[in-house]
Design a protein around this nucleic acid. Sequence first.
DNA 1: CATAATGTGTTCATTTTTGAATATTAAATG
DNA 2: CATTTAATATTCAAAAATGAACACATTATG
Lengths: 291, 291
Amino acid sequence: MDWNLIRTFLAVVDEGSLSGASEKLGISQPTVGRHINELESSLGLTLFVRGRSGMALSEAGLRLIDDARAMAREAEKFALKAAGSSDNIKGNIRITASEVVSAYLLPPILCQLQSAEPDIEIELVANNHADNLLSRDADIAIRMFRPTQNDLITRKVNELSVATHASRKYLDNFGHPKTIADLSNHRLIGYDRDDLILRSMTALGIEGSREMFAFRTDNHLIYWQLLKAGAGIGFCANHLAKELGDIEPLLPELQIPNLPMWLTTHQELRTNLRIRRCMDFLGEALGKMHL
Amino acid sequence: MDWNLIRTFLAVVDEGSLSGASEKLGISQPTVGRHINELESSLGLTLFVRGRSGMALSEAGLRLIDDARAMAREAEKFALKAAGSSDNIKGNIRITASEVVSAYLLPPILCQLQSAEPDIEIELVANNHADNLLSRDADIAIRMFRPTQNDLITRKVNELSVATHASRKYLDNFGHPKTIADLSNHRLIGYDRDDLILRSMTALGIEGSREMFAFRTDNHLIYWQLLKAGAGIGFCANHLAKELGDIEPLLPELQIPNLPMWLTTHQELRTNLRIRRCMDFLGEALGKMHL
DNA sequence: CATAATGTGTTCATTTTTGAATATTAAATG
DNA sequence: CATTTAATATTCAAAAATGAACACATTATG
């Protein structure tokens, strides 16, 4: 029994198609198809119904996915522990962070890291969703929330101070809000599906809903472009506001709680020299920033 | 990451050498060596110390075997469940039983099974140690003790009546024991490392040790040859004594408990049509024998 | 200390697996 | 109903993995 066929099987289940799985696995679509055929004939089972759009699991296939997944979990554990045992400084390391952090905080720090550890190749994965450190989407994650998965080592390295901001252009056009209550007469910029702002407001005792925002976007870059262009009042990290220019802080009495910045890696990787060096360096560098 | 490399890794650990693993896996020794090299270089670890006699696990390798084993367990579960889903009557089936049962009870029954189910190929694995139905050493086991592994379906199909026997030749030479106490003045034939006889005797309230046997062997065929040749007094299933001829039952007052005969398969396989048919047939055929 | 036994490493021809290109199919769409 | 789209199957040349044979190393053993 070829264990790799089970891995391919699982990828096809997860992606829903041979072509999707081929991309995920980094092998060609014909090969994925052949793997599935081989698995089916070696088990004497029909695992998929070759249907209208892609591959749908058959009943027999359905019965097997839990075991296949369990096997994949153990494979992940194996790979993690193996990576943790490596004391080789040479190699690459994957760091993940939100788009904002990746774009505005990390570049200079990673340059210094590069100089300090020339043997380490650094991959930066910028995205806003929580990734799975267990399946090694990344080795190190920098997030604005404390990761909840088990077996992780988390360390709070800094805090981002946030305040209400608007561009001078907006303030010239629509006036300066004097009180928090004033905000309801202004145009606000918010997130669309991300409920970070709404949750923060609820925590501050201010009720609100998605509809209160005149502009909504989940793309932070566009958010600031809207802010800069004078589309409305929004929330922005203070260090970023300085960098963007043209934007003024408002309502100092609206104390928005700082956003914590967490540096995270998997427990198994703490013994990996390369990752330990990077963790220490990033913790030091991020920690001494004035945000 | 190639999952098959982990399977090879585990085989080398279990067998202690590349050549041993190659035999176990049914691949050539150079291939096993290449797999290990590839795994080591892809993990950046030295898993084995290539030593004087075979491959000894390194510290890093030692840390990984538990996870590798866990993965193998899940692979077994997957394969079991897959086999259980098969409703294909064509195919082969592995039956395991003790050498005695394999040699004296099963042949005629398996011939009938062959006629009744011509599409099923039957493999008979004769050995005296408990095999691992979980790892599919066999699909169906016939044992004289109730298997203890979990997730097995066990069914008691018959009992073997056993009595003390000796050949006429022995009785002519050494006389007929009249009472149980008399036995201590006779030559007894016993097992060597197998303690079945001793345990049975303890259960009957008779104390004894290996040393009380004038002849000791674990090979049942040789046991009976000794019995037939008049080497001593021994224990023998009644149906077998008739078949062997020349052997007489002794001491009817020494009531030896019957040996139960258990028919066993793995729970996951109960839904496999082929195995279900064989189980039913064997249960019926073994059950109606007069033993 | 030669020899047998046992194990790993190497070479090369063969077999197997793979991927690029392409054909094919079926549903969705205008 | 033709067209687009998104998927699976097929073909064939190239790449990779494999095994047989053999070289080499080490340990028992007489």
